[in-house]
């Protein structure tokens, strides 16, 4: 039986869709060195808001995988941890961006085909 549209379902699916994209966005943003707070702000300004409870564990995970490097440095009289893409991270980012482009192209092709199919069905129904 089909359940009625549930806003919670949409939210869960939206988060699932965004999860992979956020990794890509973080890696892309860290081509230039940044610390956590400014990274979060810059992502939010580009429409990719990410809460700190997600960002910092993600940064640690990516660093653990060798894709990022980090360094504690003093700035504005406070110690801050600056993150930057590592050599391996750059390679992976290149591959991930290519993969993302492929997914984007495939999805667009599917959407295009579907919209043509829908048009044909609508025309046939007239």
């Amino acid at each position: 039986m089909v359940k009625s549209m549930n806003p919670e379902n949409f939210e869960n699916l939206r988060l699932e869709l965004r999860r992979g994209c956020l990794v890509l966005a973080v890696l892309t943003a860290l081509r230039t060195e940044q610390y956590g707070y400014t990274l979060r702000k810059s992502l939010a300004e580009h429409g990719l808001a990410i809460d700190e409870g997600t960002l910092y564990p993600l940064l640690r995970r990516l660093e653990g995988q060798g894709l990022l490097t980090s360094e504690w440095r003093e700035e504005d009289k406070r110690n801050k941890r600056f993150y930057c893409l590592s050599g391996d991270g750059k390679q992976i980012l290149k591959q991930l961006l290519a993969e993302w482009q492929n997914i984007d192209l495939s999805l667009r092709a599917v959407l295009k085909e579907q919209s043509h199919g829908t048009s044909r069905t609508l025309l046939a129904g007239r």
Partner: peptide, 13 residues
């Protein structure tokens, strides 16, 4: 390490 980073983030905000 985590507390230092979290503290810094909250202070920044």
């Amino acid at each position: 390490d985590i507390i230092a980073e979290l503290s810094e983030d909250i202070h920044s905000e």
